[in-house]
Design a binder for these strands. Structure first.
Lengths: 187, 187
DNA sequence: TACGCCATGTAACGGGTTACATGATTCA
DNA sequence: TGAATCATGTAACCCGTTACATGGCGTA
């Protein structure tokens, strides 16, 4: 999957591993992310597959930059992936929900503390999402009006992130409220 | 993480690997799941850790049942995990959002098809969640009124699942609408 | 007759994280 | 003076999936 994410970014322009990580962090972070170490390894695999090739740009006082570009075979593989429909829902894993599910045995104080901590984190995240000024998508639209389709989809996934965080936060707040009023006091 | 999920279920009663899978499928599925093969392996590890022990119940015409029970060390480890707060938000991975993010290049028809397929899947899922009669939690409450705390939390996480699916479905429908009206026709 | 349930496991592989290793530049 | 940014990579490990292997019982 990461292979296709990288191909996706490279289909706009050639990039280094380091730059790819930064792109993901600022755009797909809330539904896809990867560590630098994994990105470097995966780029090597992509090159072995013949889907990208790399050129080295020598630098002084810094490691040389290795810039990756998509090959024709890479383009084809990426297009095929885009056209291949996902026939299943994504099953999530959320350690917080798992812990809460079993937290009756933990007692009211532990539970309250956990919920308050998460409420703080999600409030902060929501502020960040909403703050991201009308988003990169709008800049793109101004500079490249022919890429309206990209802008539409980028805004849509950004909107998903906002809705998800809002929902999560509201749920945490309401769950805390229920715990406060209805959870039996720890004896 | 799976280790703690298994300890959690076993803290209510001794179970086999097969039964543990069934429990997860009917209760934690939307935020935690595991394949049988992984469960069997993890139970072995738990036993090696000294956190559970197993007894074999011979059966005829079927493989013997291996029933696992939590040890004192297991109880302690589980309690420690419950008390240990999660200081980070969970970062999700969602292949659908990743694919949509790059789908400008795929064209309107592909996009429509993908969205309609997912709308179907999420509608079905939502119906299942909501259909699950007032849930296992209420039965528990009737039979064991002293476990009100468990019931409260089980209903809370079930509620999360419903909200998540509702949000996801609404977003898919609205995104499809936007694609229909604003996505440039594929030439 | 065929499918789903019960019931256990092993082996190969793939995907991802953490730790290790290096080191100059820029900004507060 | 210390932290963040730029910039690359390797090795060990952990977690999870898929495929393989076995087989009787009940039900539609």
């Amino acid at each position: 999957m990461l292979k296709y994410a990288l191909l996706g970014f490279l289909s706009y322009q050639p990039l280094t591993g380091y730059e790819l990580e930064a792109h993901m962090r600022s755009s797909t972070q809330h539904f896809w992310h990867a560590r630098l170490s994994q990105i470097y390894m995966t780029l090597k695999e992509l090159e072995a597959d013949g889907w990208v090739n790399s050129t080295v740009e020598p630098q002084e006082k810094r490691p040389d930059r290795r810039v990756y570009a998509v090959t024709q075979a890479g383009q084809d593989a990426f297009s095929a992936w885009l056209r291949d429909p996902l026939r299943e829902r994504t099953l999530a894993k959320d350690p917080l929900l798992l812990k809460l599910f079993f937290s009756a045995a933990a007692g009211k104080d532990t539970l309250r503390q956990q919920l308050e901590l998460q409420i703080g984190l999600h409030r902060e995240q929501l502020r960040e999402y909403e703050g991201e000024l009308p988003a990169v998508a709008l800049e793109l639209l101004q500079d490249h009006p022919e890429r309206a389709a990209d802008a539409l989809l980028w805004q849509a996934v950004r909107d998903f992130g906002i809705r998800y965080e809002s929902m999560y936060l509201t749920w945490l707040e309401e769950t805390l409220e229920k715990v406060e009023t209805r959870f039996p006091a720890t004896d």
